[in-house]
Design a protein around this nucleic acid. Sequence first.
DNA 1: GTAGCATACTAAACCGATTTAGTAGCCGTT
DNA 2: AACGGCTACTAAATCGGTTTAGTATGCTAC
Lengths: 355, 355
Amino acid sequence: MPRPKSGTTLRSRKASGQGVSLKSLAEHVGLSQAAVSLVINRSPGAKSIPHRTQELIRQAARELNYRPNHIARSLRQQRSYTIGVVVPEISEGYAALVMSGIEDHLLQEGYFYFVVSHRHRDELIREYPLMLQQRAVEGMIAVDTAITSAAQVPLVAVSGHRDIPGVTNIVLDHARAATLAMEHLTKLGHRRIAFIKGQAFSSDTAIRWESVRNAAQALGLGINERLVGQLEGESSSPELGYVVTRKLLASGEPFTALFAFNDISAIGAIQALREGGKSIPRDVSVVGFDDIQSAAFQNPALTTVRQPLREMGMLAAETLLRRIAAPPGAEYPKEIVVQPELVCRASTAVVPHPS
Amino acid sequence: MPRPKSGTTLRSRKASGQGVSLKSLAEHVGLSQAAVSLVINRSPGAKSIPHRTQELIRQAARELNYRPNHIARSLRQQRSYTIGVVVPEISEGYAALVMSGIEDHLLQEGYFYFVVSHRHRDELIREYPLMLQQRAVEGMIAVDTAITSAAQVPLVAVSGHRDIPGVTNIVLDHARAATLAMEHLTKLGHRRIAFIKGQAFSSDTAIRWESVRNAAQALGLGINERLVGQLEGESSSPELGYVVTRKLLASGEPFTALFAFNDISAIGAIQALREGGKSIPRDVSVVGFDDIQSAAFQNPALTTVRQPLREMGMLAAETLLRRIAAPPGAEYPKEIVVQPELVCRASTAVVPHPS
DNA sequence: GTAGCATACTAAACCGATTTAGTAGCCGTT
DNA sequence: AACGGCTACTAAATCGGTTTAGTATGCTAC
């Protein structure tokens, strides 16, 4: 049994570095770094080290408040326990909710993550994944972002909608989402329905619109092209929905319901409709999409198609970690579909003048 | 001048690691790792290396798509170009906006950041800063979080409100904020004003309330304790404001205006007031705090005291990086005060029955 | 008496860069 | 001819851990 050296080393922790190194700890207990490392990590190689010594080491580690330098460990083990998350913009409710789910699962499993937001700038969408990999992330999650470059690490996309090798897509069942909303409106008697499509850059735009068309057709409903608007602009403020809706109103084409691309634009739409003299939901019913936090607290409370964003985030993290743990070249899911849910609140009502 | 070896090394990049190492690049150009490193980093030591060779090296680096392993570099240089951000909850508008500002400045300067959210759990508030430091962050930003343990690295707190050595606090001028709101209401003729205080754990609660009392006094206004409610519960939904406001209404004490702790609770309050038969702003004026995105798109649009959250985030990042760059032991600001702004919208109006 | 084996460790390689100290060759002086 | 100084590099240490291969010691079995 080795005996601890006299206390001098205790205060010899370097002023510069933030803490005790393995080396100083080893010196302090009078053993080799190897022995200490084996014990601290409870690695199988430590089984020949007697309990007394192990306790001594652990005790010293506790006293000196030793914490292994994660960077050194990463370098040697070729594992960083870090992943990268790519989002369009952190301050948006959508990304924030997904991230909240991601974090939940990740930190629980001992992983940390870097966040980068690209704000739809192409060069950033290209560059950030490379920078993340340079920082040795073990995998990446792309939220509502069409990753262009194939990655060297496992990648999970939340609403990515690209068929890229190596990518697992977490997607909403858009067909079902559109059907839920459209059935709800038709059941209330609505036939003249206006639509707000998403911006071209949003990866959900195409599939969502496609699904709406299909749902309309299945319900025997035609779509009046003059009642179709599209969000324009990079920002994510309700302003965009406001502008489109003004245009829809200006067209003079009558409608009794509006299905917006998301809650944010639905909120702007309601504003515009009110200013146009319409009462919600008496004159016009409005359906949003996403169910962001403030949807429930709008006036009137917004009827919307809920995406389980938090769950999608958790699912993404879970799937990614599973892929990281799997042997390279193993099978992996190409797509994971989650289900939407119609949340009926107060922005929809029966059609005003049943035809 | 060295000549490149034949192309064999070109494909010899390890399948496991994600890329070309300095070693393989050096072998490829037939020079030492040292030379290549010096050239790649344009370090002063490279000045004796002729231009032709430098070009050759850079050319090869480009062709092989060499990217230095950030972890190895961090270890050697004892610099991680990484900071840690501690927030209560990512999906809240408050933290998200601050983070957006932080990111803006940080990525621009070549830094990445880890995010951790503690959800007000004490052991996480204690543990996360340590874990971050173990991962060699060069500094930390704590958002609306009272950091307890003194850190070994520079720390900037956004709305921290603790006088801890080593911490720079970014704070709002609360006195001014309270005055702005109270003057606005009194100018409109309100004298019976109800208040919603924040949760005990929110670091802004105490100072904000103190400021409101002072502002009231300065305006010759008494505060009726029966008209003071307090948010209760961990979550950040408008529900909390709704509950408090119901209680205020139930007390039977009349009031013509309500100053809420934040926009979220103001939104819930409006809901409750409406259900209580009050029209906003005809019967009751409501003032929020923060100016989160959806404040402008409430119905009625919320009058609120704007905190420049994004700017506070940028300022925090800027200050932190400056402190990191400064020699250890240098002076640093203890506090940086930012100014609020009253945003008058449609939730406030003149008092209904002027006394 | 010694081969065999377990016990209790240690030395040294290694991860992938950066960085310091040094060296070999050449040129120009005195 | 010897020296200094410059050019163009390289060898090796280093960061702080992990991990493999190995060694010294004591004990048991034959």
